[in-house]
């Protein structure tokens, strides 16, 4: 009898604790300068957050920073307002979240596109962009009639070189003789938002025989897609599904599922099962992928789809490993 009472007491205590935890759960997200409707990175996160709120009914506190100092301030204010988990968006917030996470060891933090920090209460998301790029490289090589495909990068940083390197590996795996022309838009942050130059580079690549051009260049990519469409050639979108931007001309889009990272963060923090450390999201984790919808269904042949699915399965199974440029700052191709 005594033990039974004890059991009920313990069960009640646990139930109360769980309820308290659910009631105490207050998530927050700090969008970066682009704002939550930037048609790309931040909006991807917003979609993940929206999905979480729609499913669970839990409102997520949010803030869009307008200057450098606000990143740290916003995180601190969220903690002060009772946030139990704070999600940072993008590597620009790395320093801020590092500081706030170490000052608040009892709160949970998560950040996307960062893998070089180390805090016991911080989860970091890195994406295997090279794996997704490998798949669209296969599609590009198979769709090309000229045997020449192109790549236009944004700012010349290791991250973008990893996109390019994965793309080349994929293209060569489908057609060993394929010629890949690569250009970076620039070496400064303005390279992320220079559609005119993106268009120029694309036209130059088309003049040199390229008929499929993949872009990983932020806002510059809009110029790549429209230049390829104008010339009657094909382009490949990046980050979010950009197939709709020039239907019939965008072969596919390499998806980087930041929405998955955002959704996972909130979901895990809510369930109390929040592992910290670095999470590398690749094909196996469905963190990267390629887009197939009504806008490009006619462009993707059955052979392409079969080849990409096979490569995807091989990568997930570990039979094929795609070299990551960032691992040694070198591309074997």
């Amino acid at each position: 009898m005594k033990s039974l009472v004890k059991f009920f007491a313990a069960a009640t205590a646990m139930a109360v604790a769980t309820v308290a935890q659910a009631a105490d759960f207050k998530p927050a997200v700090i969008y970066d300068m682009g704002g939550k409707f930037d048609k790309s990175f931040n909006e991807g996160v917003y979609n993940g957050i929206k999905r979480f709120t729609d499913e669970t009914g839990v409102e997520v506190m949010e803030f869009e920073v307008t200057n450098e100092t606000q990143r740290e301030q916003a995180m601190q204010r969220m903690v002060q307002r009772g946030a139990t988990v704070v999600l940072g968006v993008g590597f620009a917030q790395a320093d801020a979240i590092s500081k706030v996470a170490s000052e608040n060891p009892d709160k949970l933090f998560s950040i996307i596109d960062v893998n070089w920090l180390d805090h016991p209460n911080l989860r970091q998301y890195a994406f295997k962009e090279h794996e997704g790029s490998y798949l669209v490289g296969i599609a590009a090589a198979m769709a090309s009639k000229t045997g020449t495909v192109g790549f236009v990068g944004g700012m010349d940083i290791p991250l973008i070189r990893a996109f390019a390197c994965g793309y080349v590996q994929g293209a060569k795996s489908a057609n060993a003789d394929v010629n890949v022309i690569q250009n970076m838009t620039g070496t400064t942050p303005s390279a992320w938002n220079d559609p005119a130059k993106g268009g120029e580079l694309t036209r130059a690549q088309i003049d040199r025989g390229a008929d499929v051009v993949y872009q990983a260049a932020g806002g510059t990519g809009v110029g790549v897609i429209s230049a390829a469409a104008d010339a009657g050639k094909m382009s490949i979108g990046v980050d979010s599904n950009q197939n709709h931007m020039a239907p019939g001309s965008v072969l596919t889009s390499m998806l980087k599922r930041v929405d998955v990272a955002a959704y996972q963060t909130m979901k895990d923090a809510m369930s109390g099962d929040f592992e910290t450390g670095v999470r590398n999201l690749g094909l196996a984790e469905e963190g990267v992928g390629w887009a197939l919808d009504e806008h490009n269904a006619a462009l993707i042949t059955d052979e392409m789809k079969a080849a990409m699915d096979a490569a995807s399965a091989a990568i997930v199974a570990g039979e094929v490993s795609v070299h990551d440029y960032r691992s040694d700052n070198n591309c074997p191709m």
Partner: peptide, 17 residues
């Protein structure tokens, strides 16, 4: 400043200028 911070003065091991 953009040129300096993305080039000669940029801190290694991270992505921000």
């Amino acid at each position: 400043m953009v040129w300096l911070l993305s080039g000669p003065l940029m801190a290694p091991g991270q992505m921000s200028s």
